[in-house]
């Protein structure tokens, strides 16, 4: 009996000291979030359980009782909306990263460093994330509008439901090129494979990505610790190494 009580006591103390935090992560932030979670676990002893997906889907799930405690959104409007609707904690919102858009092809030498390939045409399919759903898709449309190329290029759009699927269309070569997040093709500070043009940030609205503590994370130390860690210099360095600005 004593032994059981002892084990239970151990379990209980472990449960209070090292907590889990359920984090919903926008698809474009998948790779950095995994790295940050590792550092977070080492430093705090808490465990971050990450779910990846489209921000719009997370919104619907949170509104319908999903167990997420923190949302790392792909935009700044969804966290604001959740806060206004009382599903997120007021005063916890902050921008954890500003995303950069990149025109990318899996073929080396296909995309030049000024994006001239857009004007030359010569491709059948150009992949973008659904602009209605994904901030990177909306930014791509804005950039094409600024370049006065939208009308010419729009008929060749193929849309991924999120930025991860868009990347897949290009990576498999089914679309010759497309607009994705710089973070998806950046490895150790440079574009890993294929060819890319980092779209100048002046061509579209900044892609501000906000984090917020959700209702389910209220009073949870692990959720609080996650937000602190995300704001810290170590996390910022990791975030920058994937091509985000912060």
């Amino acid at each position: 009996m004593k032994r059981i009580a002892f084990v239970l006591g151990l379990l209980w103390s472990a449960a209070t000291l090292a907590d889990d935090v359920q984090v919903a992560v926008a698809a474009n932030f998948t790779a950095p979030a995994k790295q940050i979670a590792e550092g977070f676990e080492k430093e705090t002893g808490h465990k971050a359980r990450l779910s990846f997906g489209a921000t719009g889907k997370f919104y619907a799930q949170v509104k319908n009782g999903a167990p997420f405690e923190v949302l790392l959104s792909a935009d700044d409007s969804t966290p604001a909306r959740l806060e206004a609707e009382g599903a997120a904690l007021a005063g916890t919102r902050f921008t954890y990263a500003t995303g950069r858009l990149v025109l990318w092809s899996s073929k080396p030498g296909y995309v030049d460093d000024k994006g001239g390939v857009l004007k030359m045409g010569g491709f059948k399919h150009i992949a973008i994330a659904n602009p209605k759903l994904a901030p990177y898709g909306a930014a791509a449309v804005e950039a094409l509008t600024s370049l006065k190329l939208l009308d010419v290029i729009q008929p060749r759009f193929v849309q991924g439901e999120n930025i991860a699927q868009t990347h897949q269309f290009i990576a498999t070569g089914n679309a010759e090129l497309g607009f994705v997040a710089l973070s998806q093709v950046m490895k150790d500070g440079k574009v890993g494979a294929g060819s890319a043009w980092v779209v100048p940030a002046t061509l579209h609205q900044p892609i501000k990505q906000d984090a917020v503590i959700l209702d389910k994370g209220k009073g949870k130390p692990a959720a609080q610790a996650w937000m602190e860690y995300l704001k810290g210099d170590k996390a910022k360095a990791m975030i920058r190494s994937f091509g985000y600005e912060i």
Binding site: Q159, G160, E161, F169, A175
Partner: peptide, 20 residues
């Protein structure tokens, strides 16, 4: 690739509406 009148079928459109 969700192209109107070519590959955007009803089930995909429903998904789009729900996501948006």
């Amino acid at each position: 690739g969700n192209i109107p009148d070519k590959t955007r079928v009803v089930s995909v459109l429903i998904y789009d509406h729900v996501e948006a």
